[in-house]
Design a protein around this nucleic acid. Sequence first.
DNA 1: GGCTACGCCTCGTAACGCTAGGTGTAAAGA
DNA 2: TCTTTACACCTAGCGTTACGAGGCGTAGCC
Lengths: 112, 112
Amino acid sequence: MNREALKGHLDLLILSVLADGPLHGYAVIDELRTRSGEVFDLAEGTVYPVLHRLEVAGHLSSEWGEVGGRRRRSYRLTRAGSARLEQQRASWQLFSASVNTVLRRKPWPSTP
Amino acid sequence: MNREALKGHLDLLILSVLADGPLHGYAVIDELRTRSGEVFDLAEGTVYPVLHRLEVAGHLSSEWGEVGGRRRRSYRLTRAGSARLEQQRASWQLFSASVNTVLRRKPWPSTP
DNA sequence: GGCTACGCCTCGTAACGCTAGGTGTAAAGA
DNA sequence: TCTTTACACCTAGCGTTACGAGGCGTAGCC
């Protein structure tokens, strides 16, 4: 898979897994890996900055907790985050449909 | 549409339109805009460097010509370019399918 | 004569994902 | 006991990329 393929689509993926309930960062990575069938195996250095960015943007809210002696920061979608997710979904639909259209186009059949 | 959405997918699109026959740079832009229903309206500063990069990589070959007093550089897919296209296609299929899988996943239905 | 479309080019910038490095706890294995 | 692995967080810097802005030149139209 292309190294840059995720660019511009990562927010969508992360918002998407968080739409099914709050998760902490590490769990987001796990969830994405599992759901995608090991295709998306994201580095921590990839995911954490995104979570921070989304929180600053108001699309996520976070809450510190502790489980089994380990600090965790749990993220949940805000109302704005849900709206953002829907918008990103639509954006993805348009994008992928357009790519597929370009890909499917074949040259004119020979008309003898 | 996301500003970065194209990243990592642009080569695929360009190789794809060139698979249906040689085109010069300006025509590539036109073709992509038309095929995508105006969705992909790429800047020249985006496309020309990609064509150069793909040529250096051996995926395209170019030929200068003149039509109506205007210089044109026509690009055509090499054999390596065709192989690259197929590989990129497969890559896109995997990527988009994986994104869709992540998007479609819903929380477990309540089992009362 | 000026504007638009055609047709090519390059430099600089911003944004992004990721590598590499760091901190710390808990559990499992040697 | 010591070390490794998994969990869980963080950040600075790097490389790639698409794109904006600018430049060069021709043809055709108003």
